[in-house]
Simulated scan of single mutants.
Amino acid sequence: MHPHRVTFVIFDGFQALDLVGPYEVFQRAGGYDCTVVAPMPGPVGTDSGLPVHAEHGIAALSPAGLDTLVVVGGTGVHSARHDARLIDWIAAAARGAGRIASVCSGAFLLAEAGLLNGRRVTTHWARAERLAQEYPAVTVRPDPIFLRDGDIWSSAGVTAGMDLALALVEQDQGQQVALEVARHLVLFLRRPGNQSQFSVGLWSMQPTSDPIRQAVTAIHADPGARHDIAGLAAHAGLSPRHLQRRFTAELGIPPATYVERVRVEAAQRALADGGDPIDVVARRYGFGTAETLRRSFHRRLGVAPSDYRERFRSAMGETL
Rank of each mutant, 00 (worst) to 15 (best):
T248M: 11
G224W: 06
R294K: 13
T208F: 05
R81C: 09
E24D: 13
P305D: 02
G31Y: 06
L109N: 08
R99Y: 01
C104F: 05
R241S: 08
A218Q: 10
V181A: 13
P142F: 09
T248H: 13
N194K: 15
A64K: 10
A282M: 07
S314A: 09
E291R: 08
L164G: 07
W203M: 14
A113K: 08
A38D: 03
M205F: 11
M40V: 13
V259Y: 03
L243M: 15
G65S: 08
T292Q: 06
T75F: 12
H78L: 13
I90W: 03
I212L: 08
G237I: 02
D307P: 00
G174C: 02
A272V: 14
S155E: 05
M316T: 10
P255G: 08
E265G: 04
A92D: 12
E134C: 13
S155M: 10
V37F: 00
E55Y: 02
V71Q: 02
H298K: 12
R311P: 01
C34Q: 00
A92G: 03
A218G: 15
R269W: 11
I100N: 01
R99M: 04
D222R: 15
A249C: 01
F297P: 07
Q206M: 03
I90R: 03
A91F: 04
G252D: 15
A234K: 10
A156D: 08
R141V: 11
G98A: 09
V70C: 05
A225R: 13
M1I: 13
V200Q: 14
R5T: 14
R127E: 13
A272T: 13
R299Q: 07
V259S: 05
T257V: 10
R141W: 07
E250Q: 07
A221D: 11
R294A: 15
G193R: 09
R148L: 04
E129A: 15
L61C: 10
P22I: 06
G302Y: 04
E310T: 01
V280Q: 10
I87R: 11
V6G: 02
F8W: 12
D163G: 13
S209T: 15
W89F: 03
T46A: 10
A29T: 04
T159I: 12
D172S: 09
A111L: 14
R141A: 09
R81W: 01
D12Q: 15
H4S: 07
A156M: 05
S105T: 13
S196F: 14
R269A: 13
L168D: 01
R99Q: 14
G42E: 05
S306M: 00
A93R: 03
A60P: 00
A221E: 10
Q171F: 12
P240T: 11
L189N: 11
A107T: 13
E55M: 09
